[in-house]
Design a protein around this nucleic acid. Sequence first.
DNA 1: GATGAATGAGCCTTCATTCAT
DNA 2: TATGAATGAAGGCTCATTCAT
Lengths: 206, 206, 206, 206
Amino acid sequence: MSLRQRRREHVEQLILEAATRAFSAGGYHGTSMEDVAREVDCAAATLYGYFKGKGELFTRLMADKTADYLSGLAAAIDGSEGFEAGLDAYLDHWAAYARKNEAFLRIIIEVMVGGGAGHNPEPEQMEVVRQAYLGLIQRIMQRGIDEEALREENTTLLSEALIGMTHSLTFAWLHGDGPPDIESTITLGRHIFLRGATTPRDGAIR
Amino acid sequence: MSLRQRRREHVEQLILEAATRAFSAGGYHGTSMEDVAREVDCAAATLYGYFKGKGELFTRLMADKTADYLSGLAAAIDGSEGFEAGLDAYLDHWAAYARKNEAFLRIIIEVMVGGGAGHNPEPEQMEVVRQAYLGLIQRIMQRGIDEEALREENTTLLSEALIGMTHSLTFAWLHGDGPPDIESTITLGRHIFLRGATTPRDGAIR
Amino acid sequence: MSLRQRRREHVEQLILEAATRAFSAGGYHGTSMEDVAREVDCAAATLYGYFKGKGELFTRLMADKTADYLSGLAAAIDGSEGFEAGLDAYLDHWAAYARKNEAFLRIIIEVMVGGGAGHNPEPEQMEVVRQAYLGLIQRIMQRGIDEEALREENTTLLSEALIGMTHSLTFAWLHGDGPPDIESTITLGRHIFLRGATTPRDGAIR
Amino acid sequence: MSLRQRRREHVEQLILEAATRAFSAGGYHGTSMEDVAREVDCAAATLYGYFKGKGELFTRLMADKTADYLSGLAAAIDGSEGFEAGLDAYLDHWAAYARKNEAFLRIIIEVMVGGGAGHNPEPEQMEVVRQAYLGLIQRIMQRGIDEEALREENTTLLSEALIGMTHSLTFAWLHGDGPPDIESTITLGRHIFLRGATTPRDGAIR
DNA sequence: GATGAATGAGCCTTCATTCAT
DNA sequence: TATGAATGAAGGCTCATTCAT
């Protein structure tokens, strides 16, 4: 890749990061290109040299971040074996991601709650992300069913329950409630889900 | 109350209902006063005869709906005794409310996820609602602690976990996943939480 | 038609007139909605209450004026009999129209010269107008051919020649060259065309 | 002239040619520096190394082309003797020019119709061109008057009539109407004008 | 009280132009 | 000299809000 191209992509990333912060505060409609430009510290017109428009900027941002998140999650799950290990893989990955992407958390959490209906320029794409996310967690649940560890068999609902609890706890953490580290906070969700959704195994002291 | 005033308040309610539907689709920023007026079937200017402006209309809407929800919830909880009954009171009330206020559900769910950061004109007020909601659920959790039924003692986190799971499942139901009736859907959350967050009592068949 | 509607259409006409003047000075691209609004003496936003946008405003203007012109021309030609009378009908109609629509003249003249290629938002529509105009004049030429008065039989070229000469002379008149009244100016074109394109009739002293 | 300067002027010419094509399609306002640069196959910034700006580029283009046209026309007329020969000199020159400069034709034709009012950055200059063009044709007409061949004595109007007819026929030719060669097309105008504007000479076979 | 019309403010976007490399 | 990048200025358009009827 040429030096020029390198620099260009670097700036592109800088813009995307700044845009993430900007949109995180005001949402798609509540954030103007001026706002983004201010965060990047450049003129609004400059943004158009890197992205076709506000819509594309936001969409790219969402696509990049979610793709990053989902691919990492998929790898983490694939790298684990068994239901419980899969669960941990998910939660660890989420925690790590959350710590590094605070600004983006609100956005992705919202995506899971209705695809940010009405707030995003391309709700369909967000729906795709939602389904992909759900699908990955469902694979974990399927393991639980195969291992006869889960009481319930509707993987969609099980996944929604786990995700909802996780996101909600994460939000509490963001908010300053609970322990200062996200891992401890999320652990509660893990315990509740594990104990609550599984059948006690022989000899296991729960 | 004079007849005139009665009529006025009636219209006010009609507008609020219509506005709820309108805002539900597009969010605060994505919905214009024209949109609201179309739903009400009146001219946009008319709305200003009843509300100071878009902000107030939305704020009133949120305040009314949430006050309605919260007061009902408070009454339900107060009308119950003990931890488990309190839990059921919450879930029953939520289910009933959800069924009757589909249009408003997204909005309230979003409120719990960051106060609909950036999407609402008065995030502070939404934060108040969030805290009030949380506080009510925390009262239930406190019962559980008093009864020594709960393993965990951080009522905030416990409440967030329960609420997150409940809302997420509700959204799945809205989405058409899971059983067609919301009660069955939510029941899963109830089971998980009860089994997951409590200590087994003697003689209890779990 | 309701009173409201009447007023509305009246304002619409006022805007169209003002817009005609504005666009006549600067062309489509060289005239901003601000410019039009200034001519109308209203805010630019007001224009959008009457027309969807700049494109529609211009298009409507062109459509209205040209339809007016063409229908009048068609009637005039139909009301005449024979080649020479048809020619006079055309020239009289043009002269009358030119005197009353100076601001619009440049625009229609340009339309005949390439459809104002690149200057108009909807060149196709302008091409239609051009063809319609040409078609009407061709009908006159056809009479000349039927009467065996014309030497040439390509009605398209004959029409273009006549129209070009007429428009050009009109422009000279607009410019202040030649006689102060348009009729005298145009008469020159009439003479040239009649003598130049026809065969001498028996006994006619030309 | 230094080698460097030679190269510079060469590039200048290349740019002017490309710009002619570019502007021909979209007019002054409808053509961006990007468009011109694309046609030249260089960066937009490069153009500023050769021309002060868009305005100058367009102005130079018009000046060069029209100067070329006018000087050629003047030479052709001066090289002819008598009214009819002058007329032919004009028409031949025009036809030759038209064939070689199709891209520029629209522009010059528009100049004659109101200086391309509003479409050009420097209408005054275009007016000068118009007058110069007109002046040359008037010299031909003056010959006709001197020879007592013309019936009319207003050389301005005579010239406008001839020019208008010629341009209009040329446009028809551009449009694909009439004979495929421009000479035949224009000949019609010649005949009409000669027969129409002159007095029959003794013994002349018309 | 209801509303059509008017408008100021603000947003997204384009583009001619400048500048550092 | 050539150019990618940056930007101020300007334009088209929307919308919440006001006002006269």
